[in-house]
Amino acid sequence: MVEVIEEPVRVAAVFNGRHTEIRWLQWRGRDYRIRQVTDHWRAREGRALFHYFAVTDGAMLFELRFHAEQLAWELTRTYCEG
């Protein structure tokens, strides 16, 4: 099920040219080790540029939004089975 979250999160990322690696994220006091970045796309809202990443720890899919100008991460949505 998709859940809309839209909360700030702490994220450890390695920006490596075209491929961004996401190592872990901290959300609601829990750490999630990220195994895979499954998708990445960009979106413009007005003049602001956002990078979106879909990442998974193997149990859940997280949609993260990175505000390039403010260097801020947000967990926008989660998806899990059932």
Binding site: Q36, T38, D39, A54, L61, Y79, C80, E81
Partner: peptide, 10 residues
């Protein structure tokens, strides 16, 4: 297909 690519559960 784009949605399935981005979400292993789909």
């Amino acid at each position: 297909s784009v949605e399935q690519r981005g979400n292993p559960w789909l």
